[in-house]
């Protein structure tokens, strides 16, 4: 039964013809054919579950019956409507109406001959099924592909690479090797996904964008006006989140120019490409994150000043020597006190 799970709605104001069509459709393998005769039943059926195809049997003597197709199209615009219409003036009337309203996708002539009608309904049901599967796949991909990559891919190829100012945020789980050895792999993955999921939520809450998960942590960027403030608030909330997390982590934050785009060979239909941000700022943020202890944020005094975030929690100051940077980098460690209910605005 190729269409055993296809949900087909049959609109027919005559019980006799509806029974014939229903019998024939069932014989052709359609497992669920729901017959409706009026708008109220149609609305109830469409609310009960998504339809794959709608078949409308038009009767010449019910000339006003066409309006029900308008209702169907409004409620389920993505579902194809096939109208079955007798030859002659009825056909002209329905074709004209369909052309004007676009509420009917295909018009088939009565009496229904050979297998054409049933093949058409099968094709439409298959197309709908494929469309649904495609949509589910896209939903899954949207979970994997960062928002910045989706935005970049919409642009022409020569504008997919950007250089811009951003605050880069890194997180990284501390003592992950110890945790891995102490937990079953599935258990560790569950804990990790719980931790990273919560982190991503806090990043997005402050208008940041997660570029990628880096194994035991994540890399995110903050762009545009107010990025210093938003990134710092996000990072401080992350240090608070660390206390509820089963896996402790540190946070690093740096500001500067970053280069963003697709990395990999574009000649292979994107199969070998991924979106990333690179540059000295990214490197600095990663190093700052490495320096942070569990539940601590490491950043630079300049970023702290730019964020203008009122009174801040206790800090420790140090310097960091990073290869590629001409001089040592001053950095500060921030940690929210246990009793800090609210962050300074």
């Amino acid at each position: 039964m190729p269409h055993a799970h296809t949900r087909l709605i049959l609109i027919d104001q005559e019980q006799f013809s509806a029974d014939i069509l229903r019998t024939e459709l069932a014989r052709k393998g359609f497992g669920e054919v729901r017959h409706v005769a009026d708008e109220v039943s149609l609305i109830a059926e469409l609310n009960a579950g998504p339809a794959d195809v709608i078949v409308f049997n038009y009767h010449y003597e019910h000339a006003d019956g066409l309006d029900i197709c308008g209702v169907a199209k409004r409620l389920a615009p993505e579902v194809a409507i096939v109208a079955v219409v007798s030859a002659g003036p009825a056909m002209r009337r329905v074709r004209d109406w369909a052309k004007e309203t676009r509420h009917i996708n295909v018009v088939v002539e009565k009496p229904l001959s050979d297998e054409r009608f049933f093949l058409l309904v099968c094709d439409l049901a298959s197309a709908r099924q494929a469309c649904r599967e495609q949509r589910a796949r896209i939903e899954r991909l949207l979970n994997i592909i960062p928002a910045e990559a989706l935005s970049a891919i919409e642009r022409p190829a020569d504008k997919q690479t950007e250089l811009f100012e951003a605050v880069v945020l890194f997180t990284d789980v501390r003592r992950s090797t110890t945790f891995i050895t102490q937990h079953a792999p599935e258990q560790y993955f569950a804990l990790l996904n719980q931790t990273l999921g919560a982190q991503a939520q806090l990043v997005e809450m402050f208008q940041g964008s997660v570029v990628k998960f880096t194994g035991d942590g994540l890399l995110a960027i903050f762009r545009g006006m107010g990025r210093h403030y938003l990134a710092l608030r996000s990072a401080l909330e992350l240090t608070r989140g660390d206390r509820q997390s089963p896996l402790p982590y540190g946070v690093g934050l740096a500001h500067g120019l970053v280069l963003a785009g697709f990395i990999g060979n574009p000649d292979r239909n994107g199969r070998r490409q991924h979106y990333d941000v690179i540059g000295a700022t990214v490197h600095l943020a990663a190093r700052l994150c490495n320096q942070a202890e569990a539940g601590e944020l490491m950043t630079t005094p300049e970023l702290l000043a730019s964020a203008r975030l009122g009174s801040l929690p206790p800090r420790r100051a140090s310097t960091l020597s990073i290869r590629g940077f001409p001089q040592d980098i001053a950095c500060v460690g921030l940690r929210l006190p246990d009793d800090a209910d609210r962050l300074p605005e």
Partner: peptide, 28 residues
């Protein structure tokens, strides 16, 4: 037209629609 259409509407399927085939020929 209404009478002829009514015959076709009731016949529906080709294999049980000899009058409907005549009706279609009349319309043509």
């Amino acid at each position: 037209s209404a009478q002829i259409s009514k015959v076709i509407d009731q016949a529906l399927m080709y294999q049980c629609a000899c009058p409907a085939q005549v009706c279609r020929a009349i319309f043509e």
